[in-house]
């Protein structure tokens, strides 16, 4: 298990004693972890433990109540808003159901960030749009509207849009939710290829075990009851070495009660 703040190279992203809350309701507190450059980092935990909220605070949608989120040692939330936008441009986010802009075609969805934030000519943008769509196998849907696509296709188109600006960090919110195992496995391959190919760091919020074991090489386990991280490390490490009953039950897909029964015997 890695202990936060002790590796030689500075982490790309780091959370330091972060507390997240909606009004009086605390979601997570005293949360610290590092995301190494080039890793595929999994934020794990049961449903409703605050995984997606942690993601929201990392991509700039929710200001933490306390603590700091460091992007290459720079405090993201202490920075001015314009600076935050600049940092955020290095992030690509794949939302749970794609979150494509429904009034634009798939191609326009991918092109929009490039039109807004780069000085590229239309022909160059068109070329890159086709490339990004081809990378996710969606080139044929260039002129289709999101409402004409299936859930899996929307997700892949959303990934192409997340890739639009060649992000340094890619965030995935439940990438395999609602996908069949084959499509899900293909998406896993794609994530690994993108990490290897584009050198992007990847943060995945998920509770899909097969996909987590297959691709994640680091991670953190959030607990909904104690409201903080209870384990750090890759999913495989957690499965093999972690002794926390919550984590064990999660990783081995067992019921907590059954585990307690075994311990009692």
């Amino acid at each position: 298990m890695t202990v936060p703040g002790q590796s030689a190279e500075p982490p790309l992203l780091a959370l330091r004693d972060v507390t997240l809350a909606f009004g009086a309701r605390i979601i997570q507190q005293a949360l610290s972890f590092d995301v190494r450059r080039g890793s595929i980092f999994a934020v794990m935990g049961g449903s409703g433990c605050g995984k997606s909220t942690v993601l929201k605070s990392m991509i700039g949608l929710l200001r933490p109540r306390a603590g700091a989120i460091l992007v290459e040692r720079e405090d993201y939330w202490a920075a001015a808003e314009s600076r935050r936008t600049d940092i955020g441009r290095r992030f690509g986010v794949l939302f749970q159901s794609g979150a494509l802009w429904s009034s634009l075609t798939v191609g326009e969805n991918v092109a929009l960030p490039m039109q807004m934030f780069t000085g590229m000519e239309d022909a160059a943008i068109r070329r890159l749009v086709r490339l990004k769509l081809a990378l996710v196998g969606m080139e044929h849907a260039l002129d289709q509207y999101p409402s004409e696509l299936s859930g899996g296709m929307r997700k892949r188109a959303g990934l192409a849009r997340a890739l639009a600006l060649d992000p340094d960090v890619l965030f995935f919110d439940e990438p395999s939710a609602g996908l069949d195992p084959i499509t899900s496995a293909r998406l896993d391959d794609l994530i690994v290829n993108l990490r290897d190919g584009l050198g992007a760091t990847i943060v995945i919020v998920s509770h899909e075990l097969p996909s987590l074991f297959a691709i994640a090489d680091d991670g953190v386990f959030l607990d909904g009851q104690t409201k903080t991280a209870i384990a750090h490390g890759s999913p495989a490490e957690m499965r093999d070495h972690c002794t926390d009953p919550q984590v064990e039950a999660f990783m081995r897909r067992e019921r907590l009660g059954a585990l307690a029964g075994q311990a009692g015997r």
Binding site: A134, L135, E139, L194, D196, G197
Partner: peptide
């Protein structure tokens, strides 16, 4: 290898 994998994904 990285460029090769990405290129391999393309038709």
């Amino acid at each position: 290898p990285a460029a090769r994998t990405l290129l391999g994904l393309l038709p």
